[in-house]
Design a protein around this nucleic acid. Structure first.
Lengths: 157, 157
DNA sequence: AGTGAAATGACCATAAT
DNA sequence: ATTATGGTCATTTCACT
């Protein structure tokens, strides 16, 4: 798939996880390279799928999302086809900012946002509980973001 | 705090959540502005804290993190000081890529990565369970990322 | 619109394999 | 010799006033 990451690659990854929009010139300076090799490495990291993309981090509050919650879903045992369709529906809900399938008690964990508690209620009642295949839905509101979206650690080798 | 977001602002926010490293020139074209006003709006969004930052999204697998899990922590009732220190320790663990305080059964939810199951075991056994104030630790491995880190929806008004 | 800075590509140098 | 590294320079494009 790919040769191992060089120390420069690792420094690039560390920097870009914290300053995703830094100019290549500044990035090069920070990681101790000239601009041109730095850009070459950056492009290679992108082409190889090691950097999957770049994202602006937008304030939820500024957009009016005052409610954040985790929803724990248990599924009924059913044909796999149902499960696939259910999961597709979940993905389409824009309140869902992340969703993972879990091993264990709970089958799915949904990270959701909403403008207020009422619209969150509407979401869980009308759009989650009603999905065919859902056996149980349990929500916990987020009280505080202790560590929101930290970078993936980039080990030295 | 701020005047309401203009339609252009909203288009900028939508675009930058998907292409955080797009050039201002390309962004301007995409949102239907000239470069100069687009840049002014972008700076204003940054200055007002609506855009909190930018991040490269790095492949966990490419960095050798094959294990991803959610850890559900219940705390003992104890003086608030303990809780603060516990939470600080949690933040310092680099395996912890996100952590939130929850209302309900579970007090804390920890999103963690590890190189393999063994090192994840070491993490939970030696570094989570041993924290003073922790009453219960329960982990669920992530089987699949159904919707990993989606953008915050930007409503039309 | 204009000026200085950045991005980008062609090409060269060095070292390790 | 080949591969991986990094650098320099010249040109185009962009950022910013």
């Amino acid at each position: 798939m790919r040769r191992p990451l060089s120390p420069s690659d690792r420094r690039i990854l560390r920097t870009l996880q914290n300053e995703g929009r830094i100019t290549n010139a500044a990035l090069a300076e920070k990681v101790g390279l000239a601009a041109s090799p730095c850009l070459r490495r950056l492009k290679a990291l992108e082409d190889d799928g090691i950097i999957e993309g770049y994202r602006a981090i937008v304030s939820r509050k500024a957009l009016g999302f005052t409610v954040e919650a985790f929803v724990f879903i248990k599924l009924e045992q059913s044909e796999p086809g149902w499960r696939t369709r259910l999961v597709e529906r979940l993905k389409d809900y824009e309140e869902v900012i992340a969703c993972h399938a879990l091993a264990g008690e709970v089958d799915l964990i949904v990270h959701a946002v909403a403008k207020d508690i009422e619209s969150f209620g509407e979401f869980t009642m009308n759009r989650l509980l009603t999905l065919p295949g859902v056996a149980d839905v349990r929500s916990s509101f987020v009280l505080s973001n202790i560590k929101p979206m930290a970078p993936i650690p980039v080990p030295d080798h």
